[in-house]
Design a protein around this nucleic acid. Structure first.
Lengths: 195, 195
DNA sequence: CCAACTAGAACGAACGTTCGTTCTAATTTA
DNA sequence: TAAATTAGAACGAACGTTCGTTCTAGTTGG
């Protein structure tokens, strides 16, 4: 006997949204399927119908967000030329995303997927991060970036910005991230720039 | 009727060691108290006798490792003068520690304590990290480091090295961390150096 | 009217924790 | 010195709860 809103607002989306919020608020293991069902306003049966099991739900969520991130990187590659501009634009967009969709950011950059998605590779070896490293290798070949191990370069360029993001997600930064963008970027680029 | 080794090898230590390994291998929630009891060779009753509950055990473990980290920082402050030398020595020691005691490192830098120790502040606002930031502020006052927000400075200086550590813990670095030390440190120091 | 979907009560397994007991070694008593 | 007493560390079977999952019945759009 469904109540007010029986209309088909995509059930999958409702469930994924609820899961994202609960997983990032309390963590995967502290969130029960019953919680997700209640928050999403969708029955347990539907959740199992659509996602198979709790892990399948987490996997679907991870896939959705990874795809969104890859899309972002594609867009940036189309709009910019140099490694410098691309990396800077990426950091800018990630800082903005952290303010507008902190849960999505937390789930991608901060959650320990290994603990609940055993077969998933670590985030830093996932496609989006691999794309970033390819980007930097080309930058090195063109002389924009000092010669060094590609892994070291990507780690040193993005390490600072990413730690700023996690600090913000932890709630220990007084101001929104874009406030720090220029200062952080100056440091990050100096770390690897050829000049 | 005790068997071979009934002698008092400190029970607390046995339990803490087992917990550290299991927590970092599988995560806090995937580790049952029964697992810890079995691995440590100590009964469930004893664990509750010593630590109160599972959370108390995690808290004791966290406190032990935090203390060890603070001790390391003290030692470095006594042995070095400049911010440059101190930070470099710290990174060196952390890289070595990651190779010799990867579990301890993973638990300190990588675990999401918030999820199972609700009252603990985030690691980056814990004492050891606060000490590092004070160190850098003094370096800025002395002109070794460019003028900038203290939080940004510490994040940019240590962000790269720390991400290298997590990459190594994830098993995606082919060589031991000290191999990369010079290259990583060169990037890290350039990021914030005054020159 | 049928296939796709939703519903939520019910189930079994596994968890953290408790509790009555045993063991051990030090201390007291005679 | 030998026996009696004591304190608390160690033990592990058992408990109640909660979780992920299943199942059967009902609803709905095309």
């Amino acid at each position: 006997m469904p109540e007010i809103a029986a209309q088909r607002e995509d059930t999958r989306t409702l469930v994924l949204d609820a899961a994202l919020h609960l997983f990032t608020d309390r963590g995967y293991f502290a969130t029960s399927v019953h919680d997700i069902s209640r928050t999403a306003g969708v029955s347990i049966g539907s959740i199992y119908h659509h996602f198979g099991d709790k892990e399948g739900l987490a996997r679907a969520l991870y896939a959705t967000l990874t795809a969104r991130m890859l899309q972002l990187i594609d867009e940036i590659e189309r709009q910019t030329d140099s490694s410098h501009d691309r990396a800077r634009e990426l950091v800018t967009r990630l800082f903005e995303l952290t303010e507008t969709q902190p849960q999505a950011m937390a789930f991608m950059l901060y959650a320990r997927h290994r603990e609940f998605l055993p077969d998933e590779p670590p985030v830093c070896s996932s496609r989006p991060f691999a794309r970033m490293r390819e980007m930097l290798s080309r930058g090195m070949a063109r002389g924009e970036i000092r010669q060094m191990d590609a892994m070291v370069a990507s780690t040193c360029l993005f390490g600072g910005p990413i730690r700023m993001i996690t600090a913000r997600l932890d709630g220990i930064l007084p101001h929104p991230l874009p406030t720090y963008l220029d200062e952080v970027w100056a440091c990050a680029w100096r770390a690897v720039a050829a000049s």
